[in-house]
Design a protein around this nucleic acid. Sequence first.
DNA 1: GCGGCCG
Length: 302
Amino acid sequence: MEGNSSGGGSSVGGGGVAGAAGVVGGGGNDVELMCKTLQVEHKLFYFDLKENPRGRYLKISEKTSSTRSTIIVPSSGISWFLDLFNYYVNSDEHDLFSKELQLDTKVFYFDIGENRRGRFLKVSEASVSRNRSTIIVPAGTSRDEGWASFRNILADINEASRLYMLSNQQNSESSERLVGLSDDVGAGFISGHSTQQPAPPTSELNVDRAVDLPTQDEIGNLGVSKVIRVDQKRFFFDLGSNNRGHFLRISEVAGSDRSSIILPLSGLKQFHEIVGHFVEITKDRIEGMGSANVRTVDPPQR
DNA sequence: GCGGCCG
């Protein structure tokens, strides 16, 4: 029950007067969409969902009397954080493992620790050319309620972030003014993130899970599409995005059948390398004849 | 009003 924000004047100058030079330092003029605080033991955690022209992100800060540290989670990572905290809350104490979460250029490390004060989860963010920053979340005194409260807040924020994404999408359909407001367009449906599913604890978190994807076309179409024809088949390459991040959808269309694979952009380079490998080892066979009937066709502009 | 985090 010690899970909730109390009136500590939490929000960053939210009620604050204009003219108070109110802009948060460092965060610049980023718009604050939602903010919450959580107290666990003597630590205070601040959750700020923010948005700027480059997209949406969640800033999580840990503050004690002596320490302040912050991690920045891109919006595509919020649901992963939620899943991971669910994992740490729901799993048996004995089979808790460290996890890594890779998002674009950042890597987040989740590690369990324990000392005289109790158990804790260390979440640290490593990104190129920036100091590693870490927050430490106490498990809590009884039944991991520290982690559970943290998870509950992540769930709220994840939901809010999803709604912002959907409304941005609608807005940009109806009016072009907002173009460039967020690069996180696209729909995606997360069905219930309900209780008992301990997110897949496999190590390659970012590869296997893009399954809950929009199957309709046009969603998250970022205007980047390619089509190739090979024999009787056509292959469509479409960039899209949902709240898990950006992906490339490759669809094979033959007759009225269509099937797709969804490739998170984080895997695109590997994909490319592997295709390159096969091109290399089959070069002799395809260069002689096959290449003539593989053509690239750009879709009509606009 | 604790204490982790190794920069």
